[in-house]
Amino acid sequence: MIATNRERPRVLLYEGAHSKPIDPSLRRRLVPTLLDRGYTVTRITENAKLGNLGHTELVVLGAFEQQPDFDSDTSVLKIHTRDIQSDTFESLLEYIEGIAAGVSEARPHWKPWFPVIDYDRCTNCMQCLSFCLFDVYGVNQDKQITVQNQTNCKTDCPACSRVCPEVAILFPKYKAGPINGDEINQDDLRREAMKVDISSLLGGDIYSMLKDRSMKAKSRFSKERDDDRALKERKRCLDKLQNDIDGLDIPAEVLSSLPSLDQIQAKAQQAKQRAEQALAEQALAEQSPKPAT
């Protein structure tokens, strides 16, 4: 089970009724430091309501004249209130970290690299499911493509985004647009379509041809579409793409960790079957009469 942010106490800077403003220099050091360490930090002022984000513990910091009084759903929270008027940055940090140590277990490693699907653009074509060798994608109960195993995703590898004909797969931490979520223009669409074409040549495991692909290219592809040959060329071409066409941008470590050709073939076949099955089920569902409501 994936742990949540709520395992760390939420830190509240209280500057509401019956309190003085917190020393600005302290605020300016404390907030970024806590955020960089994974805390959620909230600041409330007069008449502000504290929403419940589900944390089990809340640390309330303030220069209090009386006990803080704020409107919140705190029924499930354990509240640690601290008047910080005689605190230093270091003593406060130690205090907060001490509370965190008491309530949170070691957080599982989190990898800031995973695909996010833009469903405004996704056409459910299943090319990503078919292409990815690491089972990152799957289909949900509605037969819609979804990210099922994001931790399988290879860090810094945006290849599935490159093969998506609709530029519907984002990696928010990626360096460049449109993969990072930047707006998409026609040049992007043309460039991405070209890369889909190339990816088809490489793997032989993407079954949907692009609509706008030229007949000449199709003819060349059909001559070269020998499974063994295509698979043998996969690594070589991926490497070449890196340098030649601002290509798939697959990290060297991912390339070097690719499975054997036989394994790639088996995985590609499995992925293709899953995609075909999902598409067939999707088509069946669309053809079935809808129950009267």
Binding site: T4, D36, T45, G54, W110
Partner: peptide
């Protein structure tokens, strides 16, 4: 921080999304 605005601040929205943190709902 220097303004008088109340605010929420989180460490990383990507992390919260990856963990499907229920805190994103409110």
């Amino acid at each position: 921080i220097d303004s008088d605005q109340p605010f929420e601040s989180v460490s990383d929205l990507c992390e919260m999304s990856a963990r499907k943190d229920p805190g994103l709902v409110p």
